[in-house]
């Protein structure tokens, strides 16, 4: 130890202005430890989510078999004759989400191609903030649009349409995820190197030909990643469907029918007077686990695709 001290002094001690100061090093070590704890909060969050969901749904699965949960075609935990099949909720979730994708993907991709391949700077400067504003609107507001603006409009177009249906929240959700699809797809398109475009232009191809036959296919995996992420967002969206879809779990692919989704069901139970700890109450944790797993899988697929896309030269 004595030797180390001497070494340190020989190196440090030769200047006049060099004072022996330990404080900065102590601070650095202390701060490092504190910041490390901060970063552990994220791990803790994940563990806590898993713990809460697993423990609470354990109580549920003690009374209801997982087979019934996954295969029964009825979801009526709040009725006298109880059935616990998640399929109707899953179906409602997918139905509204797919409608949302039908609305947002074609428009989002067209706008993304336009922004990345055609638009000049001033136009971009108007469009980008608009999309960001769209992304900043709280979902409760979209819920209001769905129930009180879009549904009445649809009722005029489609006679006999009920006040609650899957179509209206699906459309509004499409508007909601439009910015996500657009900006992520645009990033993917922009990541395609210019040399590829130049190869096309040098052959005399038009901008649209280059965009559709060269840029778009090169960016396809990045675009897929953005669509999957948008799907995940739609699956997890809550307030729009809770307000406008009707809270009626049924196994239907008819967009004109009222449905319920996994998220909407959780809100419905949370709002009501179902006693904490009862079987009916624990259903929301079982549903939440299914929701968590579904979005987790979608997110990971998207994450993986994007990583590969960037690695194989999409990104610079």
């Amino acid at each position: 130890m004595q030797l180390f001290k001497e070494v340190g002094q020989a190196i440090a001690g030769e200047s006049k202005i060099q004072k022996k100061r330990r404080l900065p090093y102590l601070t650095d070590t202390l701060v490092r430890a504190i910041l490390f704890l901060c970063s552990l909060v994220s791990v803790f969050t994940t563990l806590a989510i898993l713990a809460v969901l697993v423990v609470q749904s354990y109580y549920f699965f003690r009374e209801v078999s997982i087979i019934e949960f996954l295969t029964s075609k009825q979801w009526t935990p709040l009725f006298a004759e109880k059935h616990f099949g998640i399929l109707p909720l899953l179906c409602g979730t997918l139905l509204t989400s797919l409608i949302a994708l039908l609305v947002s993907v074609p428009l989002g991709l067209a706008v993304a191609v336009y922004l990345s391949e055609y638009a000049r700077r001033p136009i971009r400067k108007v469009i980008k903030p608009f999309l960001e504003i769209l992304a900043g609107i709280p979902t409760i507001v979209y819920g209001y649009f769905a129930l009180l603006t879009i549904t009445p409009l649809l009722q005029k177009l489609i006679p006999g349409l009920g006040g609650f249906n899957a179509l209206s929240p699906g459309i509004v959700m499409g508007i909601m995820i439009l910015p996500l699809v657009t900006s992520l797809s645009e990033d993917a398109l922009r990541a395609v190197p210019d040399s590829l475009r130049e190869g096309g232009f040098a052959l005399g191809a038009s901008k649209l030909q280059v965009s559709l036959t060269i840029v778009f296919p090169s960016a396809l995996s990045g675009i897929m990643a953005s669509i999957i992420l948008a799907l995940s967002r739609a699956v997890g969206e809550t307030m729009i469907v809770a307000i406008a879809a009707g809270n009626l779990p049924q196994l239907t692919w008819n967009p004109l029918e009222p449905v319920s989704t996994m998220t909407a069901y959780i809100v419905q139970v949370s709002q009501g007077d179902t006693p904490y700890g009862s079987l009916a109450y624990n259903t929301i944790f079982a549903v939440a686990i299914a929701l968590f797993v579904l979005t987790f899988i979608l997110n990971m697929i998207s994450f993986r695709i994007r990583k590969t896309f960037m690695a194989i030269g999409g990104g610079n």
Partner: peptide, 16 residues
């Protein structure tokens, strides 16, 4: 992954 967890799941986390 946490950034992609639906907000309602955070609600249940908070509840539990």
């Amino acid at each position: 992954n946490l950034a992609g967890v639906p907000s309602i799941v955070y609600g249940l986390l908070g509840l539990g």
